[in-house]
């Protein structure tokens, strides 16, 4: 059980002498730390985007599923009669669980963000809205539309699906893109660290030769490089993650504007999610460097 984890355990245990065997090289150290930091920063944003998109898709799905709205546009004198007629039709329609007309106050509240609190609702030809709740099986939207067109010409059924489906699909797609971005960033990080590790291995060919001549095993030599690169990636990614979390935290709060962009971020325990980025970066670096080191050592005679 512990055998496959042995390299990781050895790495975490550390070896002061092994750490000193490879001479410090400023360039690859800075390159690895910078790459890990920049990539972690991007991952935090991709993660925030993905989480926000997921949250949005869920909210839209929940809020709009099983609901519909009927809008009645009629002269003020006929408004109540048409409303009563529509409610009566809905009562007879299979698949409708409940239906009610929104009060003037509720309609005023809906329009308030656009027209302000002092909207003279009775002076404007504002349509009456009827909120419809569906049963689990739902109703026949086309049939209802036809009946309304025939019996209450001023009533228009909006079952939300027309604009709900593409929005939810877009949010789902956005979440998927965010996750794909994270995978791509991980792959790019692995590639960059592999290049840096290869450069370090090439620069230390003499060190490798000496270690081999005195009886070092390849696993020991690889570990000296792997540990260094993993720790660099870990520290770089930790800095990048903190910077990314700080930037997300400084974005305007959702309730200030309520739009998607201001809702980009983490909520509650979601803030723990970015903390997985540094260990993940370290794991990617560990695998990339170990692969590069062992491949290089196999090539060397």
């Amino acid at each position: 059980m512990t055998r496959p984890l042995r390299p990781l355990i050895d790495l975490l245990a550390g070896d002061r002498t092994a750490d000193r065997i490879v001479p410090p090289s400023g360039f690859t150290a800075r390159l690895t730390s910078f790459t890990a930091g920049a990539m972690a920063f991007l991952v935090v944003f991709a993660l925030a985007l993905s989480v926000a998109a997921g949250r949005m898709a869920e909210r839209w799905s929940d809020a709009l599923a099983q609901t519909a709205t009927i809008r009645i546009s009629a002269p003020a004198a006929q408004m109540q009669a048409q409303t009563d007629k529509v409610l009566a039709i809905l009562k007879e329609t299979p698949g409708v669980a409940a239906a009610r007309a929104l009060s003037d106050d509720e309609q005023k509240k809906l329009l308030e963000p656009w027209f302000g609190p002092d909207l003279p609702l009775d002076a404007l030809p504002v349509p009456r809205l009827i909120d419809v709740r569906e049963t689990a099986t739902g109703f026949d939207a086309d049939g209802l539309k036809n009946r309304l067109a025939a019996e209450v010409p001023g009533a228009v059924l909006d079952d939300h699906t027309r604009w709900r489906r593409p929005l939810v699909a877009a949010a789902d797609r956005l979440r998927l893109l965010g996750l794909m971005s994270i995978l791509l960033i991980g792959g790019a990080t692995a590639a960059m660290i592999t290049l840096a590790a290869n450069a370090a291995l090439a620069a230390n060919a003499q060190v490798i030769r000496v270690l081999r001549l005195i009886g070092s095993r390849d696993s020991y030599i690889a570990r000296a490089f792997v540990r260094r690169f993993t720790l660099r990636a870990l520290s770089g990614a930790a800095a990048g993650t903190l910077a990314g979390m700080g930037a997300i935290a400084l974005m305007p709060a959702t309730d200030q504007a309520g739009s998607f962009l201001t809702g980009l971020g983490f909520q509650g325990l979601g803030w723990l999610l970015p903390l997985l980025v540094p260990p993940a970066a370290a794991l990617v670096s560990f695998a990339a460097t170990r692969g590069a080191a062992l491949a290089t050592l196999r090539r060397l005679t």
């Binding site: 002498t17 070092s216 095993r217 020991y220």
Partner: peptide, 12 residues
């Protein structure tokens, strides 16, 4: 000193 001890340290 560390160079001389290297065969020991590098083999654990």
């Amino acid at each position: 000193a560390e160079n001389i001890a290297l065969p020991l340290t590098a083999t654990g």
